[in-house]
Every structure is written in structure tokens, then in C-alpha cells.
Design a protein around this nucleic acid. Sequence first.
DNA 1: CTCCTAAATGAGTGATTACTCACTTATATA
DNA 2: TATATAAGTGAGTAATCACTCATTTAGGAG
Lengths: 219, 219
Amino acid sequence: MDKQEYLQQLINAGEEEIELTPKQAKILEAAIEIFAEKGYAATSTSEIAKKAGVAEGTIFRHYKTKKELLISIVTPGIIKLTVPFFANQFVSEVFKEKSESYEQLLRKIIRNRFEFVQKNIPLLKIILQEMAFHEELKQSFQNIFIKKIFPKFDEAVTQFKKDGLIVDYPSSTIIRFTMTTIIGFIITRFLILPEAEWDDEEEIDRTIRMLMHGIQPDS
Amino acid sequence: MDKQEYLQQLINAGEEEIELTPKQAKILEAAIEIFAEKGYAATSTSEIAKKAGVAEGTIFRHYKTKKELLISIVTPGIIKLTVPFFANQFVSEVFKEKSESYEQLLRKIIRNRFEFVQKNIPLLKIILQEMAFHEELKQSFQNIFIKKIFPKFDEAVTQFKKDGLIVDYPSSTIIRFTMTTIIGFIITRFLILPEAEWDDEEEIDRTIRMLMHGIQPDS
DNA sequence: CTCCTAAATGAGTGATTACTCACTTATATA
DNA sequence: TATATAAGTGAGTAATCACTCATTTAGGAG
């Protein structure tokens, strides 16, 4: 899969098909790279055009404004990042085998998202940075979380609580703790200390064991 | 303590005394507010001047460049935010009473920083946002962490491991897990869902118990 | 009061910004 | 080949940017 095909499927986030011209793909590619490096507000359209090897006018042929370019990058990115966290098949798979533990579920989630993040670090940086300043982005992220992620997660947690497999705290607390642990690990791994030596398999394993049993010994 | 005195002691982070004129305090106050809201790059000096009720030239009398204004806000902020995490008195206090548990140490840390963050949310936002784009800020944060926070933390963790109070994983892993749990809670509490209803005492308590014993039941 | 110095001002500057538009080039269909 | 439509161009534009500087104001010492 070449770069353009890759962008194609990133931008067409499951919805309508949009054909990308080669120059359009170049623009997206350049914009993602520079937005991630310097931030949206500090990036000029002339810089994007230069890096993409196109005329500045070409950007505005495809995107009415600079902000529309940002949105067209980030919105599909949010969907691709969040929705597979609890894809339908994913959860039902876990529920089918009731014997499977919460630990198994977590291991699947973390491994599942690890690879995606690894391949989309610039995109992840843009999402984290720009959600803070653009209310629509924050809203669309919250909507996805509230409607698609949380209910599935809540269902799983409630079930596991009933089965006595996890502690009886409010689901929101357990979900928050679980997510900050996973997201905290991924952010540390790829954004804060990417150049450190990581034994990913070991670290994922220890992280999940700490999440399950805490940092007390003899669990 | 009025606002100017407050800024005074924020900016003079333990080092040399710098006298702030009233207008200078107004400038800092306005800059912190707008930088937090829109981001450094998207904020114009004319906007800061207007909000501060001063002429634009006044900003450049005190700060050579817009970036110098940012640095003079963020650098003392980083110090005030991070250093007390493991202030000298703080750790020695814990080590004196050897019977005290890791749990007690965590409870002190989290309560200690909770109040500071609550009072400095805009400052915290600026630090989180701008560290990503300004290498010097990232460096100064890393230096403080490596030289002042990590060694103390490592010392404590190593001691607790020896005493068999916490699990025998690498210190770096335990510290990372501990910090992402605390920071993740604080960021969720104040930045992601500040408008939700929080029972802070309960949530701190549950967070620490999950950190210690995990989410398995019957700990 | 006079003098001195630091603080404050705001009109002005060149550079850069996002965006436009008249025009050219490429592609597809018949 | 002829025609239509979409893609691409780049010079041009008004607005805004960070920053300067000659000048005025404020406050304290003698």
C-alpha cells in the first residue's frame, strides 16, 4: 500500500468515498507533517504548498480555508483512532467466551491500538494539540466517546463486576483508571520518551499486571 | 494576597527578586489567560495589550520578544509545578517514618499537587501545550525531572521494594505507572471533564487504592 | 522647584498572512 | 479531433503580524 492509498483510506473514514488527486495527497501528507511539528496556528499555507510541491492556490481549490484542511485531517483521524477501541466484533468476541478475563480484554485493546498509534504518531500529535483549541473537534471526540466507546466499555465493566472479576467501584472510575493507564503508557512510549529503549512486550505485560493487581507485591 | 503579589511569587521562582510594575503584572495576567485559551501562536501581542489595558509598546519594554514573554511565564511555572513533587523536606519526612507505606507517600503527593493545579489551570494548559513546540521548554522540564524528581522517586521506590512493600518491577516502570495514574487523574479532573460532578476525596482515595491493589477484587 | 531616570505611549514599518481570481493545463467523453 | 469539466497555477490583495522609536508622563532625590 503506497502513501496515497494509505491517506485515501485514512481520510475516507468508513463513510463516503472521496477520490484524492496525487497533488491533494501530497498536500495532506505535508500538512500532517508540519502541523504535527509546529502546530496548526504556527504553520502557514505557503509552507505547506512548498513542502507539498504545489502552488498555494491548489490548497484552496480543495479546501476552502486552512481550518477546513485541519478538520479534514483530524476528524477522520479521531474516528480511526477511537472507534476500533471497542469495535462491535471486538467486544462480542470477548463476551462470547465468558471465561475470558478483563485482563485478556485489556491485552487485546492495548495491542490493537499500539500498532495504529505507532504508524500515526504525527496524526496523534495533531489531535492531542488541536482538540484543546477547536471546540468542534473536542465535541466530535466527546460524541464518539459517549456514544460508541463508553457504553460498550460500561457494559463490559458491569458484566465483569457482576462476575466478581473486578472491584466494585463506579464504572466511570474503573474506566477512567483503565484508560489513563493505557493512554499514559502509549503517550510515554511514543511522545515523551520515544528514544528510550523499550521492551514493548514486557512493558505491555507489566502495565496490564499493574493495572490488574496494583503495585503491591505477591498478587 | 492580591493578584500582583501572586504573580510576583510565581515569576520569582525561588531565584532572584524581580520587581513587577503594576502594568507588567497586568501584561502577565492577560498573557496567561489568552495563551491558555487560544495557544501561544494564535495569540497576538496587540490582543494581550488590549486585554491588559496597556499600549502594545509597553509589552516590548519589558520583554524583548513575544517568545521571551512566553518563557518568562512558563519556566517559573514548570519549577513551581514540578519541584515540590519531591521537595527535600517532603521525602525525608517519609523516610523518617519507615513504617509509613508507599500508599501514604502517594496520598501526600497527590493531595499536595491537587491544590496547586486547581489554582493554576491556565498555566498548566500553557505548559502542556507549548512544551511540545519549544525545545528549550521541553529540555528544562526534562532537566528538572531527571535531576530533581527522578532520583528522589527512585530512591523511595528502591527502598520500598527492598522492604517488600511494592512489587519488584524496574523502578522506571513503577514510576511511570505511578505518575501516569496521578497525572491522568488530575488531567481528567481539571482539563477533560472539569464540569462533571467529582467527589474529590473519594476519587483520590479510589485512585490510590487502584494504584496499589489494581482493579481486581478482594485486595 | 529642577533634574534625572525609568515607564509608558502609539503611530509607523516591513514582512508575512490567508485567501482570490483570471488564466493555463490535463483528462475524459463522444 | 472537438468540447467540457476539473485540476492546477501564481501574481496580487487587504489585513494583520511582531516589533521600533521618537516622544511624553511619572516619581523620587536634591
